[in-house]
Computed example of a mutant assay.
Amino acid sequence: MRRILALAFLLACTAAGQARDAMAGMAMGHEAPLGFDAALDDAGHLWVVDSVGEHVRVRRSDDMGRTFALSTIVNPTGEPVYAEGENRPKVALGPAGELYVTWSQPRKLPWTGFVRFSRSLDGGAHFDPPKTVHTDTAEITHRFDSLAVDAQGNVIVAWIDKRDLVAATAKKAPYLGAATYYSWSTNRGATFAPERKIVDQSCECCRIALARTPDGRVDAFFRAIYGDNIRDHAFATLPTDGGAPNVKRATFTRWHIEGCPHHGPSLAIDGRGTRHAVWFSAADGKPTIWYGQLAPGADPKHLVAVAGNGASHADVAVSGAHVWIAWHQMTANGLDLTLRESTDGGEHFSEPRAIAHADGPSGWPKLVVWKDRAFVAWNPDGRFRLVPTEAL
């Protein structure tokens, strides 16, 4: 029975996510989508990106999210924008104050899209006209974009892409899921290199986690497909010199599901190079958020079952030996924003505690760190909050 209930829950999540995707770009009244992203710069300015109708919006707060001193529309000429769940606008900060924004733009056919990019070189007052990152312009899936900046200031964009599925289908060859692709810019987003494939047969609708390594590169952690629809995770470093990514399997929960659970992972890398990761699996009918330290090609180390039934969409952050994990926990009374933390580098974790509550839905939580303090960006019912993680 537990297996049946877990599968029913996951199928409902998948169907709901697909329904949201199908409706993206359609009129939604005055209700703002809940998808957002956030980042804190070195001066403590909070940057939030979300969408208003057919416009991507960037806001800056100088008081930790209580008020916003700046609000700029990135694309004055409106266009459809995916802005829910795993597929939402992203923001990243450059080393000289640059602001970079990506989003996925729905096309006419269901579940299709282009990955769009814009930049601001003047502190968010103005943004360049948006451009499509990839050279392939077929009306297929290029969606679920992720964005990062490496230590050299290179901009990296990764996304889910179905061009190889289309090619295989035309040849009547088997192909599960989609592929993951990426591109990069070495000139602050003025131009992008022709896209490169990371790997074939990855999950269709789970977000890609990107994180910077101590030596300044960007690593990717994402749900891939192994064998007959085993939906575990892969790991790769994304070169910006034309080299090929070295992709290795990173989790081994052996969850078999013939569909995408809309439940991507998160990755944070500390100064020693330890790869702290969280991911979701419902193998053996047991929905679980897992924490582990990735050892690509082998089982993760220090595995911890962070949360079980009703838990979803975890994020992880690290500063020194302090590790934070935040997630959504469904309860009989609504939605709890829940936290566990470690002060010894992930060896041991505190018991779960709720740090905020909402009666209605929210965009997925996003952990941000400033001066060794962690906060959770959250927007229950579209009312943005920056929630401290310190116990009161």
Rank of each mutant, 00 (worst) to 15 (best):
A12C: 12
D21L: 15
G25Q: 12
M26R: 15
A32G: 03
F36V: 08
A39Y: 11
L40M: 15
W47D: 08
V48L: 04
E54V: 07
D62V: 11
D63W: 09
T67P: 04
G85P: 03
E86D: 13
V91I: 15
L99Q: 09
V101Y: 12
V101R: 10
L109V: 08
R119S: 13
H126Q: 07
F127W: 08
H134P: 05
D136C: 07
A138V: 06
T141A: 14
R143Y: 07
S146Y: 00
A151D: 04
N154T: 02
D161I: 07
T169P: 00
S183D: 01
W184A: 10
S185F: 02
D200S: 13
T213L: 06
Y226S: 11
G227C: 09
A234D: 07
P239S: 03
T240L: 03
A250G: 00
A250Q: 01
F252E: 01
T253D: 15
H263C: 12
G264R: 14
H276R: 06
F280R: 06
Y291G: 10
G292C: 10
H302P: 01
A311H: 10
A314P: 12
A314Q: 08
G320R: 10
H322W: 11
A326C: 08
W327I: 01
Q329T: 09
A332F: 03
T338R: 02
L339Y: 03
D344P: 05
P352T: 05
A354H: 05
A356D: 10
H357W: 07
H357S: 13
G360R: 04
L367N: 06
F375P: 10
E390L: 10
L392P: 14
